Simulated scan of single mutants.
Amino acid sequence: MNTALQRPDETLDEGERQFLNVIKDHGWFHTRVFDGKDEHPDFSYTTGFSVNHGYPEIILFSLSKDVSHSILWDIWREIEAGTRPEAGTRVHGIFGNADAVLLPVAKSSYEEHLGWNRWFYGNDDFDCLQLVWPDRDGRFPWESGFDDKFADSQPDLTGGGWKFHPA
């Protein structure tokens, strides 16, 4: 897989070099995006999961920087240990006692949300999963009774209407 890791150092700016050095040293990079506007939730995503483990990158919304980073590290370690959370199924343990679901992100969402990944991979030819968390009652956004006050906390990146319903 051709990535920015193969680019000559002299063609990179300082920010790009730092980004790549973290991936070289730790295997992946945690990008945190905070819009600062109430209408768009903050989010975090990985770069390096795909190139180093053949597992899709992950994006998640509306969790603090520290919580997001910890969750993504835990998933990285699971993948390194040979456990690969399956897309479209309920995954236990990611959020303590609450389930999570990983859903494929539509390519139409890449430009708005995955800028560093698009730069790193040189295109949109990589997979990404959205890590979706439930409301306090364990319901997901596509389930009846999901608490509406969380509706804007996790935008649907599946391509519309949470169309990929997990089993």
Rank of each mutant, 00 (worst) to 15 (best):
D99H: 07
Q154A: 13
L157K: 06
P104S: 08
P104M: 03
V101P: 10
I79V: 15
P141Y: 07
N97V: 13
D156G: 02
P85C: 11
Y110G: 01
E86A: 14
A106R: 07
R118T: 14
D125V: 03
S144P: 03
E112C: 08
E78L: 14
L102I: 11
F150D: 11
L102Y: 03
P141L: 11
D156H: 04
L129N: 08
P104Y: 05
R90F: 13
L129D: 11
P141W: 08
G82C: 12
E111C: 06
W142V: 06
L103G: 04
Q154W: 06
A81F: 03
A106S: 15
L114Q: 04
L114T: 05
P155D: 06
H92Q: 15
S153W: 13
G93A: 08
N97M: 11
Y121N: 10
T83S: 13
G138R: 03
S108M: 08
F150Y: 15
A98C: 10
R90P: 07
A100D: 05
A100I: 04
T83Y: 13
R84D: 03
A151E: 15
S144N: 12
L131W: 09
G160C: 11
L102P: 02
E86D: 12
R77Y: 08
D127L: 10
P104R: 02
L129V: 09
E86M: 13
E111I: 12
G159D: 05
E86H: 06
S144K: 12
G159V: 06
W119Y: 04
F146G: 05
R84K: 15
D147V: 02
N123R: 09
G122Q: 02
R139K: 15
N123Y: 04
L131R: 03
W76S: 01
R84E: 14
V101Y: 07
K107G: 00
G145R: 01
L114H: 04
R84I: 12
T83M: 12
K149T: 15
L103D: 10
N117E: 09
D156S: 06
A151M: 05
G160D: 06
D125A: 12
Q154N: 13
D137Y: 04
I79P: 01
L129M: 08
F150H: 11
N117F: 01
W142P: 03
V132M: 10
N123M: 01
A81Q: 14
T89G: 09
D147H: 09
V105M: 00
S108V: 10
G145L: 04
G160H: 07
N123L: 10
S153Y: 13
L102D: 03
L114S: 07
L129S: 08
F95P: 09
G93H: 03
L114F: 07
R118K: 13
D147G: 09
Q130L: 00
D147C: 08
L131P: 07
W133Y: 07
G93N: 10
S153N: 14
E78I: 00
K107M: 00
T83D: 14
H92D: 14
L102H: 02
N117Q: 11
F140G: 07
V91K: 01
R118I: 15
W142N: 07
G122K: 01
D152I: 05
I79A: 07
K149C: 14
R77W: 11
H92T: 14
Y110D: 05
L114G: 08
A106V: 03
V132L: 09
G145T: 03
W133R: 06
L131F: 00
Q130D: 03
R139C: 12
D148A: 15
D148C: 06
